[in-house]
Design a protein around this nucleic acid. Sequence first.
RNA 1: GGGCGAGUAGCUCAAUCGGAUAGAGCAACGGCCUUCUAAGCCGUAGGUUACAGGUUCGAUCCCUGUCUCGCCUACCA
Length: 666
Amino acid sequence: MYRELQKQLIEAVRTILETSWGLEVSDVVLEQPPDLAMGEFALPVAFELARKLRKAPRMIATELAEKLSTTLRPGDGFLSFEAAGAGYINVRLDRARLMAALASGSSQRPSEELPRVLVEHTSINPNKAAHVGHLRNAILGDTLVRILRARGHHVDVQNYIDNTGVQVADVIVGFLHLEHQTAPEVEALIARCEALGPEAREQRFDYHCWNLYARVSQWYAEGSEDQQKERKQLRYQTLHAIESGGNETAEVADRVSTAILRLHLETMLRLGITYDFLPRESEILHLRFWDRAFQLLKESGVLYAEQSGKNAGCWVMTRPGGGNSGEGPDEDAKVIVRSNGTVTYVGKDIAYHLWKFGLLGKDFGYRRFFAYPDHTCFISCMEGEQEHPHFGGARAIYNVIDSRQSDPQANVVQALRGMGHTEAADQYTHFSYEMVALTPRCAEELGYTVAEEDRGRPYIEVSGRKGFGVKADDLLDKLTAATRAEVDARQPERSEAERQRIAEQIAIGALRYFMLKFTRGSVIAFDFRDALSFEGETGPYVQYTAVRARNIFRKIGMTPESALAAVESLQSMELAVGAEDIWAIWMRAARREQTLETAISSAEPSTLARHCFQLAQEFNNFYHKHHILTEEDAGRRSLLLATAAIALRELTILLEWLGVEVPEAM
RNA sequence: GGGCGAGUAGCUCAAUCGGAUAGAGCAACGGCCUUCUAAGCCGUAGGUUACAGGUUCGAUCCCUGUCUCGCCUACCA
């Protein structure tokens, strides 16, 4: 109903402007007054018209308000229109009617066919344990998936696995040439680690590789010049062996990366994050996706063979911003195929994205890989199972990838556009976000020595190569331990299993909210003090609020649904009119869908996190001010109960979108 | 050199397409637990929105210039 009122109002303003003044305004701006007591909507349109009409804004506002009140009647849901301030028009709604509509939950969105979308997120190199930076990616991605589904899209979730890249190669170099292990020995190690189970963190295979990767990176940089050259050569030999496949090195790499991949999936599952499909680079190579893409790129003229200059002998592509000045070679062009004939990462990515949009004319084989409680995750392979869901061929895609990759991402879009796939290019969203870094203090806490010059900086970038960072599982364990201690103290009568479950839910709530409350563009300077805080603008604060609301209904022995159903027969709704703290909660509920739309169109989940937190604040304020159980006036009590019920309903929906559960008790 | 992003309270961050008095949380200080859970609530203090111009009824937001910081810009992946 709220949305319809907005539309009606904007339409009415447009009509009046046209018929009375013969004016056309492209965009009628609708705002909220700074204080709810002033009304539900505010129209600043009079300011815009002041110049055209050569009249004071306030006068225009008065006139327009008058016309509006004869057009939109109380029967439509509008109560009054009045000029305010220097020239605003404040609009009051029929609160009782809006409340009734909200309580009955009649905010159905049209069931039109929404396009199938594809979200790629997580995409961790399978060569080491996941860290906080990966958590930000996965949590942002998973939340995006949840809100797209809430809007009504069919969403396929993909986690791209670069199992044949240089990072995997580095760890394999470590196993084979630094530790001098044989293939069976590596396999035995994986088996031993798996037998220990996920609880033995320090002995986990991905933790082992975390350290090994750091050692190898250091090993490359050590020794004499000749040694370094030799080691670098070893590195590329290993990489090429892995890329070509069908040899023992590739076999070991596959075992190692697959074992780590499973651990990553388990880590993410702790946070309630799941995937539908895991496309791997090995299949993109062996199924020759690139050959087909190369052909298409040449045919469309996107790629051209550079004849001279520094890129002579390469197949290159003009960059999005740049362009050939006409004279001589475009030195700024992006190399896609090297002079030795090998394809770069961006080239493979173009092929992969043609597949995503169903424009390649090739497909993966699919095989079952990981079982979730409610569905199965498939992985790419050469020859797959007979029956499998179809992935790819999406109308719109979102790539959750940090901002450092904006250049290669732009290249892929440029290629699509150049090939004439303008619709695909328009529906390609690089959901970029800034990295997670560590505060210098946090780095020191972890036992890393911080260079003097870094000590003054607000943050230090994590580095997998240096083994510098906070591992995802360690952080989750730390959060769980901290919440567990608090739960033990507060809920001593509950069973061990219950308390553990609650502690985990709170830990996840804290972590997910922490990652979501920042806007995408801001670097998160990670610090345990902030992340382990459960007060103020945090997940546990919101969870606690929902638990509080639910306790009211448990205590009184009635359901929130029946409290909402009672709104119809409320005689005392006028009470809400004077009580802005109550009305604020209902208005918050009214704005939910609009906030969802904003979050999606701006690809900014933090909008929803903030909305959710503000609702929690409003409810806590209300909770403190009104004591429901001891309220004697029956009508007023019904109003208070309905308000608690709407708050609980909204909090539950919003937290679900954010991937945060409401614990039994806190 | 070029591209992208950032600079707002002591700290970490917001600010709905350019709108009314720039808001939260932490930290600090002062209050509130015989009452539905104090992981809570209320209050105090804290600001020349990096700087200088410009655009207009109005600028944290748009334009120009300057300063500072980060990332990207390889025939690495």
